[in-house]
Computed example of a mutant assay.
Amino acid sequence: MLRRDLLEGKLKPKQRLQLKFLMEEYAVGQTPLREALNRLASEGLVEVRDQRGFVVAGISADELRELTRTRCWLEERALRESMAAASQDWEENLVLAWHRLAKAPRSLSTETFVTNPEWERLHRAFHRQLIAGCGSKYLISYCEQLADLLYRYRQLSIRRAFQSRNVRDEHETILRAVVDGDADRAVALLTDHYRSTADVILADRSVWDGQENAKSGTM
């Protein structure tokens, strides 16, 4: 639950994580709570402060750019390997993952943005299936870790992204390139998809107020 709240932005960057509050909030004892916080620190979601306990990991424009760049590098290799080893099951599962995602509403409300947890689950499933056939559980694991860290940034700017993007069409064009066997186009579309998300977040001043100022320029 703590990990989920960190990723979804309910616990804000640099927020102090007071043990007494967390013990009450999550109905857990101090020992398992400390173990959880130390594990989350190893994942980069929490920072340990000497003599001052734990705080939510901060954010920075430079980190966002680095995470995005690294994800693009790794998922390019993973996607190319998946396409090179493409099986009928892998392709059918990818088409099914896209179909389910396309059917899910992005927002629970048509008038204002209300995040849809089911869309988020299906979105992650689609992107996971793109690289599922790469043949390396370690590569998939690294990609998943980067996806989590970037998900936290995306949640901080989700309302702006919702207004400015047609991600359904983006996902469909990626799928079509994969099904057509055009690896170069599929990789280009996927990396543009990730970079566009980063650019939206970098341009959202509400994310960076009180944080390190985002530098000008795009990915």
Results as ranks from 00 to 15, higher is better:
67 L>N: 06
68 T>Y: 07
208 W>H: 09
98 W>T: 02
105 P>S: 03
199 D>K: 13
35 E>D: 08
9 G>M: 04
103 K>H: 10
61 A>C: 15
141 S>G: 12
212 E>W: 12
130 L>Y: 02
102 A>L: 01
162 F>H: 15
112 T>Y: 09
201 I>T: 13
31 T>G: 05
123 H>W: 13
183 A>C: 02
209 D>K: 15
122 L>G: 07
66 E>C: 09
158 I>R: 11
135 G>R: 00
60 S>A: 11
21 F>H: 12
146 L>T: 09
87 S>W: 01
211 Q>N: 12
92 E>N: 09
91 E>M: 13
195 R>D: 07
21 F>R: 11
105 P>V: 05
152 R>I: 06
73 W>M: 11
16 R>Y: 07
50 D>Q: 14
110 T>C: 00
100 R>Q: 07
165 R>T: 12
58 G>W: 10
82 S>R: 02
96 L>K: 05
74 L>I: 13
153 Y>F: 14
170 E>W: 12
46 V>L: 02
122 L>Q: 14
6 L>Y: 02
41 A>E: 10
77 R>Y: 02
108 L>V: 05
90 W>S: 07
104 A>K: 05
78 A>T: 02
20 K>E: 14
124 R>L: 12
148 D>A: 07
36 A>G: 03
39 R>N: 10
109 S>Y: 07
173 T>K: 04
23 M>G: 07
194 Y>N: 12
193 H>N: 12
138 Y>I: 04
136 S>K: 13
63 E>I: 02
121 R>I: 10
136 S>E: 08
61 A>M: 08
26 Y>R: 03
59 I>E: 02
23 M>P: 11
76 E>C: 05
61 A>Y: 03
66 E>H: 11
46 V>N: 00
195 R>M: 08
50 D>V: 06
104 A>G: 00
124 R>C: 00
138 Y>D: 10
8 E>S: 15
98 W>E: 02
66 E>W: 04
71 R>L: 15
73 W>K: 10
187 V>T: 06
128 R>D: 09
199 D>M: 08
158 I>S: 03
172 E>D: 01
9 G>D: 05
190 L>F: 06
196 S>H: 12
42 S>E: 14
25 E>W: 13
145 Q>Y: 04
175 L>Y: 06
139 L>I: 12
92 E>Y: 05
142 Y>Q: 15
39 R>T: 12
62 D>S: 14
202 L>D: 04
120 E>N: 11
18 Q>P: 00
4 R>P: 00
132 A>G: 08
92 E>F: 10
38 N>P: 07
84 A>F: 06
94 L>M: 10
171 H>R: 03
